[in-house]
Deep mutational scan, measured.
Amino acid sequence: SDEELKKRIEELVRRGNKDEARKLAENANSDEARKWWEKLEQL
C-alpha cells in the first residue's frame, strides 16, 4: 500500500539512505510515493 511504502521511504531517508529511498519511490510506480520522496528530500 502507499502508506506502507511512504513509511519505508521515510525510514530510509531518516537513516541517511537516500539513494535506496529514491529507488524505492521510483520503482513503486506510485505518484504518491514519488511526491512523498520529493518532499522528504527537501528536508
Rank of each mutant, 00 (worst) to 15 (best):
I9H: 00
E32Q: 08
N29V: 07
R34L: 14
R8I: 12
W36T: 04
D2G: 08
L43A: 12
G16E: 02
V13F: 15
L43F: 09
A28Q: 04
K18S: 13
N17P: 00
W37P: 01
S1E: 11
A21I: 03
L5N: 00
A33R: 02
E38T: 06
E10P: 00
D19V: 05
W37Q: 02
K35Q: 11
D2C: 00
K23D: 07
K23P: 01
W37I: 14
L5F: 06
R15I: 13
G16Y: 02
E41N: 14
K23I: 10
L12K: 00
E26V: 06
K35V: 10
L5D: 00
N27W: 13
A25G: 03
K18Y: 15
K6M: 15
G16R: 00
L43R: 09
L40G: 02
A21C: 02
R22Q: 08
D31N: 06
E26L: 14
E11G: 03
A25H: 01
E38W: 05
A28T: 07
E4K: 06
E11R: 03
K39G: 08
E26A: 09
W37T: 02
R14H: 10
R22M: 09
K35M: 11
E32I: 10
E10T: 09
L12D: 00
K35Y: 07
I9G: 00
E20C: 04
K23S: 07
N17V: 02
R14P: 00
E26H: 10
V13D: 01
R15K: 13
L24Y: 04
K18E: 06
E41F: 13
V13N: 02
E38V: 07
Q42H: 11
R15Q: 14
E38Q: 12
G16M: 01
K7T: 06
V13L: 15
D19A: 08
E10S: 06
D31S: 08
E3D: 13
E10R: 06
A33V: 15
R22V: 04
E3A: 10
E32W: 15
R15P: 01
A21G: 02
Q42P: 07
R14W: 07
K35F: 07
K35W: 10
N29G: 13
E38I: 09
K35R: 12
K7W: 10
E10K: 05
R8F: 05
D19W: 04
L5S: 01
S1C: 12
N17Q: 14
N17W: 13
A33T: 14
L5R: 01
E10C: 13
W37C: 04
R15F: 07
S30A: 04
K6T: 04
E20D: 06
K6V: 12
D2Y: 14
K35L: 13
R34H: 05
L24W: 03
D2N: 10
K23R: 12
E4P: 04
D2T: 13
G16N: 03
L12R: 00
L24P: 01
E38K: 08
L40C: 06
E41S: 14
R8N: 04
K7L: 10
K35T: 11
D19T: 06
A21R: 00
R22E: 04
E41Y: 11
S30E: 03
Q42G: 10
E3T: 09
D2E: 12
V13G: 00
I9C: 06
L40D: 02
W37V: 14
R22G: 03
E32A: 10
K6Q: 05
D2L: 15
E32R: 03
N27I: 10
R15C: 11
E10N: 03
E11D: 11
E41C: 14
I9A: 00
S1V: 13
W37N: 02
A28C: 13
E4W: 13
L24Q: 02
K39W: 15
I9Y: 01
I9R: 01
L5G: 01
K39T: 12
W37S: 03
K7M: 11
L5C: 03
E26I: 10
N29R: 07
A21Q: 00
L12P: 00
G16L: 01
E3G: 07
V13R: 02
R22D: 02
L43D: 12
L24K: 01
A25N: 01
S1T: 12
K23C: 08
N29I: 10
N27D: 12
R14S: 08
R15T: 13
E11H: 06
R22S: 05
K6L: 15
L43C: 11
K7I: 07
N27G: 11
E32N: 06
W36F: 14
A28H: 05
E26S: 06
G16F: 01
A21D: 00
E4M: 07
S30C: 04
